[in-house]
Design a protein around this nucleic acid. Structure first.
Lengths: 193, 193
DNA sequence: GGCATTTCTTAACTTAAGTGAACGAGTTCC
DNA sequence: GGAACTCGTTCACTTAAGTTAAGAAATGCC
């Protein structure tokens, strides 16, 4: 599992064996059971997550309903908004499957950054990459219908459609579970023709 | 107009008179006429924009229709995706009103950053702030109906509803102009009760 | 195993957005 | 001044998503 982490990092910077060992000594790996809630609405947390294996989910509760806005799977990083804003969180984060993640916080990051300045470079690259991806996602969401969004999800993240409960997927697509069922039936019907 | 720029910068870092003069000497101010297209789909550009006065708009052309995904008004910054990716742009950027903007590019930024290292700090703060705002916007868009989105726009950016053509606003809300008209009529009807 | 719960699907009905067309009010351009 | 356009609105009709309810299938829990 460490190799997954080091493999990811090596896309951005190179680490010596010594540096790897220091990272390992920080005890950042966590094994999380499906269903575990990592962050609750109203909570102030300093924890950032990085998924090595599994899937975690970000959702709001609005009018008593769960509204899922993001899934994070292998090699996705997630820093909740409340970490920077220092306000209570607006949303929940929970574990969709049994997962292996690393947990970090600003203090730990400062420590690592001072030991390896190249870490900061990686963080900047990551945040730029993330902002760009986000904007593209947002634009695609805005300019598509629910059906188009579902089809593009099938193209781009086919694993999600399999591993995530349909009702969570529905709210991720901005519709109700019943509508997703119907939409899927409609597509299958079209395929038959 | 320079004061608007320096006022904005002073939220992040402080500049000496000398530093201000160097910035002014770079000749970055542009006066853009309403309707001017700053970036076209398919074009490779290195220009980033910062709006001092006026309004610029980002839009896609999908199935022959303009799909507006963002408006940038006073003190908003916009670095098109193509600057970092070095690929042709997927979208257009055009000027909604006569506007005053600053235009920059990576070379110029490198030059400024080497002269004033604190500029880089500002850029990092800005990009983090932007990413956070973006995520919140995205989540709000995803978890709302068109009517809720319109009402929240009235709350948060009431000026936009006034200064931007309705059909551009409609596509920004993810609906057709006719639907926006209807939706507005519906709301006015409700208010009468 | 068996009971309860969750998850997914289907159906009937309601509501809102998409579509195509038409009209009036402004603009722009000769 | 008048023709051509753009823009916003309204209307009638279509299509798709929301709602409510019900039932089947899978899962979890004693």
């Amino acid at each position: 599992m460490e190799n997954a982490l080091f493999g990811f990092i090596s896309n951005y910077i190179s680490l010596t064996e010594d540096e790897k060992n220091i990272l390992l000594s920080l005890d950042i790996f966590r094994y999380i059971k499906k269903g575990t809630i990592l962050l609750k609405e109203g909570q102030k947390s300093q924890d950032s997550y990085f998924v090595l294996k599994g899937c975690i989910r970000k959702y709001y509760i609005k009018d008593g309903e769960e509204k899922t806005t993001a899934f994070f799977t292998e090699l996705d990083a997630l820093t909740p908004h409340c970490v920077a804003s220092k306000n209570p969180s607006d949303y929940f984060i929970s574990c969709v499957e049994d997962s292996i993640i690393t947990v970090s916080n600003p203090d730990l990051e400062k420590e690592v950054n001072s030991k390896f300045p190249k870490f900061e470079i990686m963080c900047r690259m990551l945040s730029e990459e993330l902002l760009a991806k986000h904007q593209i996602n947002f634009d695609e969401f805005k300019t598509s219908s629910p059906e188009q969004r579902y089809l593009s999800l099938l193209q781009n993240r086919p694993d999600l459609v399999q591993r995530v409960p349909q009702h969570q997927l529905a709210s991720y697509l901005g519709i109700k579970p019943q509508s997703l069922s119907r939409l899927r039936a409609r597509i299958t019907e079209k395929d038959k023709e």
